[in-house]
Amino acid sequence: MTAYRRDRTPGATWFFTLNLADRSQRLLVERVDLLRASFRHVMLRHPWHIDAIVILPDHLHALCTLPANDANFSLRWRLIKTGFSRALPRDERISPSRQSKGERGVWQRRYWEHRIRDEDDFRRHVDYIHHNPRKHGHVQCVADWPWSSFHRYVQAGLLPADWAGGDISLLQAGES
Score class of each variant (00 low, 15 high):
E92W: 10
W77Q: 06
F150A: 00
C64M: 15
L44V: 07
A87I: 05
L159H: 02
D144H: 11
L66R: 02
K81C: 10
S169F: 09
G166Y: 13
R26Y: 14
L170H: 11
G174E: 15
V142Q: 07
L44T: 09
A87R: 10
F84Y: 06
E30D: 13
S24W: 09
D7I: 11
F150N: 00
R78T: 10
L27M: 08
D118N: 12
N19K: 14
C64F: 07
A161I: 11
T9R: 15
H41V: 04
A21Y: 07
L158M: 09
W147S: 10
R124D: 11
V32E: 14
H61K: 01
S148N: 02
R115K: 15
S24R: 14
W145P: 05
M43R: 14
L34A: 05
L35V: 02
D144N: 13
D70S: 06
A156T: 04
A62G: 10
L18D: 15
V154S: 07
Q140A: 14
R104Y: 07
G174Y: 07
G166K: 09
P67L: 01
F150Y: 02
H114T: 00
K135Y: 12
W147M: 04
G11I: 03
D91K: 14
D167K: 01
L170P: 05
I53P: 01
H114F: 08
I129L: 03
S148C: 02
P146Q: 03
W14K: 01
S148H: 03
R5P: 10
V29M: 05
L159V: 06
H49A: 14
W163F: 03
H61M: 00
S24T: 12
C64A: 15
V32R: 08
P96W: 02
R76D: 00
P47M: 05
R23Q: 15
L63T: 00
M1I: 06
I168Q: 07
S149H: 03
F150D: 00
H46D: 06
D58Y: 02
D22C: 07
F84M: 04
